[in-house]
Write a protein that binds this DNA or RNA. Structure first.
Length: 717
RNA sequence: GAAUCCGUAGUUCAGUUGGUAGAACGUUGCAUUCACAUUGCAAAGGUCACAGGUUCGAGUCCUGUCGGAUUCACCA
C-alpha cells in the first residue's frame, strides 16, 4: 500500500467496476425486502451542481440497505424541464443569431430533443463521478413514448372524473410576437411615466372616490375599486357603488388586504382582465373580467366608442375625455417596473387566455388525510406541518403551457359541435390515441390544443410512471417506493403534487417516507448563486479532492434537514480523515502474520517493558465498538446521517487508532496474531460501516485486503 | 406583510423526555529512525443573542425584544 490514498487512482476504476458487476441493476429478489428510491430527475439542460450532489443522501441509503441485504433499486431518469430547457436552448440559438420563431413546431421540438439527449449523457457521467449507485441501464425521460402514454391517460382520467376544467388565466402576451411568454422570458425594466388620479363618482351622489393608475385605458375594463379594510378614509364606503366614468357601469368598492394604503390615494381600480394583481383580487371578490384589449393590440368591442383604437391612441382619447368631464384630478410623474418581451423588447400585455385547470380540492384532501394518518412519514418532522399547510392552501392548478418543449396536451376541440353533448363540453374531448373524429358528434373537423403540459404535471407522476414503464412486476414489487428524498424548497412544487397525483391514479401513496435535505451555503451562510459568484463547482472539487471528500463534507457536522456549509477547511479535514483511514489499514496490513516487519522497536535502555494484557484491552475495545454499531443502526434508520459519520469519525480516528492501536502497537509489530486478526476484523467492519459515506476509498481498501475482484457490496458475511 | 428555521468557543456546527458545556478547524506549546506531518500529545478559549416566566434545577419548555436566513404573497 502507498503511504497516501490518491483518489484519482481509484474512483473512475471503481465506478466502472460497480457498473460492470451490475450491483445497482434493477432486479426483483422476491425473498428480500424491497427498498426503492426514485431519483429526483435532474434537468437535462446543464451541468451538475451542488444541489445534485446533495442527492448523496439517497446513495447513502441505497448502499446502506444493500449492505443490510435488502433488494434495492434506485431509479435513474432525467427531466425535460419544459420552460427552463426551452429558455436555455433559445440562449444557444441566440448565439447563432436565431430564435425559436425561425422554426416550425416539429423542427424546433426535434432540435431541443437532440440538445437534451446530448446533455443526458453528460449528466449520467457526472452522477457516476459522484459514485451514485443508480440503475443507469434503465433510464427514464418524460418524452419516452411509454411515459407520454401514461401521462396522457392520467389527464384523461382526471378529465373523465370531472377534475379538469377550462378557465381563463392571464398570460404574458407580446402583441408584436403574437404569442405568450413564460415568466422567465419577461424582463422587468424601470420606465418613467405618469400616474393619473381619476375621480369615480359615487352612485348615491354623495361625492366621489379618487384612484391612481398608470394605465388609464384599462379603465374601460374596470369591474371594481379596492381599498384596504383598515383604511379609515374609506371604511364607510366599502360595499357601496361608484359609476365608472365614460362607460357608466356600476361597480362596487371592495376591501382587500393587498392594497397598500400609502400608494396613491389608497384606492385602486380593479381590472381583472389586464393586470395580474387585479386578476387575483377579482377572483377573490367575484368580480367580472372584461377584456378591453385584444391580442391584436387594439381595443375590443367591449371598449365601446374606443373599439379599434390602439392602446396608446385609446389612452390619449380617454385622458382627454376625462379632462373634459373634469374627472382627472391630477397627473404626476411616476417610475414603475414594466414587463418587456425578451425577444422584441416591447411591452408585455397581460391578457386572459383559456387554459386547462385541475380541481385540487378533492386531490388535496386525500393527500392531507394520508399525511395525517401517517401513511407517509415526513423527516425532519417540522415539514409535516408545512406540507399539510401547503396542501390546504393549494389553489387550482393551471397545467397548460404555451411552449413547444413539453408533452402536448391530448385535448381536441371539435369545430362542428353537432349535438348537445358536444356543445355541453364546449367542443372539447380528450383522447389518449390520435383521434380521427370527434368522440361526441363524430365530426372529422377538430384540432388539437396547441399547449403542452406544465413540467410538474409529468414529474408529479414520476414515481409511478418510472416503475410502470419497467413492467408490471417491477411496479408491483417496488411501488409504493420507500423514500422520496429531495430539497425542502420543492415541497410545494413537486412533493405535494406527486402525493396528490399518486394517490388519485394508483390509489396508493407514491412513497412511504419523505426525507428533505437543506441547501448548500458558503462560509458566510449565503445561498450559493451565480450572480453572487460564490458557487462551488462539484466537478472541480471531485478533481481536486475526490468524490469521497465532497460527499463526506456535505454530510459531516450537519443535522438532518438543515442547510449545509461547505468550506475548504471542511474538505481538507475530510481529506485528512480519508488519509488516516488509509494508513490505519496500511499499518494493520503490513503487520499481517507472515509479513516481515523490519522496524520492530528495540526496548529503550533503562525502561522496563511491562507485558500487556492484550485480551483485556481487546475486550474493552470490542465492547466500545458494539455500542458504536448499535448507535449506527439506530441513527441510519432514523435518517441522522451527519451524526453517524461524526460518530464513525470519532471512533475510528480518536478511539480505535489514537488509543487502542497506539497501545497495542508494540504487540502488533512483534507479530501477535490475536492482536492483528482482531484489529483487522474490526477495521474492516468499520470500513463496511463507512462505505455508504465514502464508497470509493472503502472499496479500494476492501480490495487490498480481500482481493481485486471483491466488493463490500456483495461480501459474504 | 405571513409562515418556518436559526442565534452555543476566534470560525463552522453538535447538544437525543430539563440534571456538571461538546467536536472539528484555527491558535499556542511539546514530540520526528515509528503506518500516517494530510501525524501524535497537551493547553488556552463560552454570561449558550437579550429580557422576563415555569421549575429544586433551563442551552433545552413558555412569552416578548433584537438580529440573521428561507419560502410564500405583494410592488397598481
Amino acid at each position: 500500500m502507498d503511504s497516501k490514498y490518491t483518489h484519482a487512482q481509484y474512483e473512475q476504476k471503481l465506478s466502472a467496476f460497480w457498473e460492470q458487476k451490475g450491483f445497482f441493476k434493477g432486479v426483483i429478489e422476491k425473498d428480500k425486502k424491497p427498498f426503492c428510491i426514485v431519483l429526483p430527475p435532474p434537468n437535462a439542460n446543464a451541468d451538475l451542481h451542488l444541489g445534485h450532489a446533495m442527492m448523496v443522501y439517497e446513495d447513502i441509503m441505497i448502499r446502506y440497505h444493500k449492505i443490510q441485504g435488502d433488494n434495492t433499486l434506485w431509479v435513474y431518469g432525467t427531466d425535460h424541464a419544459g420552460i427552463e430547457t426551452q429558455f436555455v436552448f433559445e440562449k444557444h440559438l441566440k448565439k447563432e443569431g436565431k430564435s425559436r420563431f425561425d422554426f416550425e413546431r416539429s423542427v424546433l421540438f426535434q432540435m431541443i430533443f437532440d440538445f437534451v439527449s446530448k446533455n443526458k449523457n453528460i449528466m449520467q457521467e457526472q452522477l457516476q463521478k459522484l459514485g451514485f449507485g443508480l440503475d443507469y441501464g434503465n433510464p427514464k425521460f418524460p418524452m419516452d413514448e411509454n411515459i407520454v402514454k401514461i401521462v396522457h391517460s392520467t389527464f384523461k382520467k382526471l378529465f373523465d372524473d370531472g377534475l379538469t376544467y377550462r378557465a381563463k388565466k392571464l398570460v404574458n402576451y407580446c402583441i408584436s410576437c403574437g404569442t405568450s411568454f413564460s415568466d422567465l422570458e419577461v424582463n422587468y425594466e424601470e420606465k418613467e411615466g405618469l400616474l393619473w388620479y381619476i375621480s369615480y363618482p359615487l352612485r348615491d351622489g354623495n361625492g366621489s372616490i379618487t384612484v391612481a393608475t398608470t394605465r388609464p385605458e384599462t379603465l374601460l375594463g374596470d369591474t371594481g375599486i379596492a381599498v384596504h379594510p383598515k383604511d379609515k378614509r374609506y371604511k364607510k364606503l366599502i360595499g357601496s357603488y361608484v359609476i365608472l366614468p365614460l362607460i357608466g357601469r356600476e361597480i362596487q368598492i371592495v376591501a382587500d388586504e393587498s392594497v397598500d394604503p400609502k400608494f396613491g390615494t389608497g384606492a385602486v381600480k380593479v381590472t381583472p382582465a389586464h393586470d395580474h394583481t387585479d386578476w387575483e383580487t377579482g377572483k377573490k371578490h367575484g368580480l367580472m373580467s372584461i377584456q378591453v384589449i385584444g391580442t391584436d393590440g387594439k381595443m375590443t368591442t367591449e371598449a365601446g366608442q374606443y373599439a379599434g383604437l390602439t392602446i396608446s391612441k385609446a389612452r390619449e382619447a380617454i385622458v382627454a375625455s376625462l379632462k373634459e368631464k373634469n374627472l382627472l384630478v391630477e397627473e404626476k410623474p411616476y417610475t414603475n417596473r414594466v414587463g418587456k418581451c425578451y425577444r422584441c423588447k416591447r411591452l408585455i400585455e397581460p391578457l386572459p387566455k383559456e387554459q386547462w385547470f385541475i380541481s385540487i380540492k378533492p386531490l388535496a384532501e386525500r393527500a392531507i388525510d394520508s399525511v395525517k394518518k401517517g401513511e407517509v412519514q415526513v423527516f425532519p418532522k417540522r415539514f409535516k406541518k408545512e406540507l399539510i399547510r401547503i396542501l390546504d392552501n393549494f389553489i387550482d392548478w393551471n397545467i397548460s403551457r404555451q411552449i413547444v418543449w413539453g408533452i402536448r396536451i391530448p385535448a381536441y376541440k371539435c369545430d362542428a359541435m353537432k349535438n348537445d353533448v358536444c356543445r355541453s363540453a364546449n367542443g372539447w374531448f380528450v383522447s389518449t390515441t390520435p383521434p380521427t373524429n370527434c368522440s361526441h358528434c363524430g365530426s372529422e373537423s377538430f384540432k388539437q390544443d396547441d399547449d403542452t403540459f406544465d413540467t410538474w404535471f409529468s414529474s408529479g407522476q414520476w414515481p409511478f410512471v418510472t416503475l410502470m414503464t419497467s413492467g408490471n412486476e417491477m411496479y408491483n414489487h417496488f411501488y409504493p417506493t420507500t423514500v422520496m428524498e429531495t430539497g425542502h424548497d420543492i415541497l410545494r412544487a413537486w412533493v405535494a403534487r406527486m402525493l396528490m397525483l399518486g394517490l388519485h391514479i394508483t390509489g396508493k401513496v407514491p412513497f412511504k417516507t419523505i426525507f428533505l435535505h437543506g441547501l448548500v451555503r458558503d462560509k458566510h451562510g449565503q445561498k450559493m448563486s451565480k450572480s453572487k459568484g460564490n458557487v462551488v463547482n462539484p466537478l472541480e472539487v471531485i478533481n481536486i479532492f475526490g468524490a469521497d471528500v465532497l460527499r463526506a463534507s456535505l454530510m459531516f457536522e450537519t443535522k438532518e434537514g438543515s442547510d449545509v456549509v461547505l468550506t475548504d477547511e471542511k474538505m481538507i479535514g475530510m481529506r485528512n480523515f480519508g488519509n488516516k483511514l488509509w494508513n490505519i489499514g496500511r499499518f494493520i496490513f503490513m503487520n499481517r502474520p507472515g509479513t516481515i516487519n523490519e522496524n520492530v522497536p528495540q526496548p529503550i535502555k533503562g525502561q522496563v517493558s511491562v507485558p500487556k494484557d492484550t485480551t483485556k484491552i481487546l475486550a474493552k475495545l470490542e465492547k466500545e465498538f458494539e455500542s458504536v454499531k448499535k448507535n449506527y443502526m439506530k441513527n441510519m434508520d432514523g435518517y441522522k446521517f451527519g451524526q453517524v459519520l461524526g460518530d464513525l469519525h470519532a471512533f475510528t480516528w480518536h478511539r480505535f487508532a489514537d488509543i487502542y492501536i497506539e497501545e497495542l502497537k508494540g504487540e502488533l509489530k512483534k507479530g501477535d496474531e490475536q492482536v492483528q486478526t482482531s484489529l483487522e476484523k474490526m477495521y474492516l467492519e468499520c470500513i463496511v460501516l463507512l462505505h455508504p459515506f465514502i464508497p470509493f476509498e472503502t472499496e479500494a481498501i476492501w480490495q487490498v485486503f480481500k482481493g481485486e475482484n471483491e466488493s463490500i457490496l456483495n461480501r459474504k458475511v
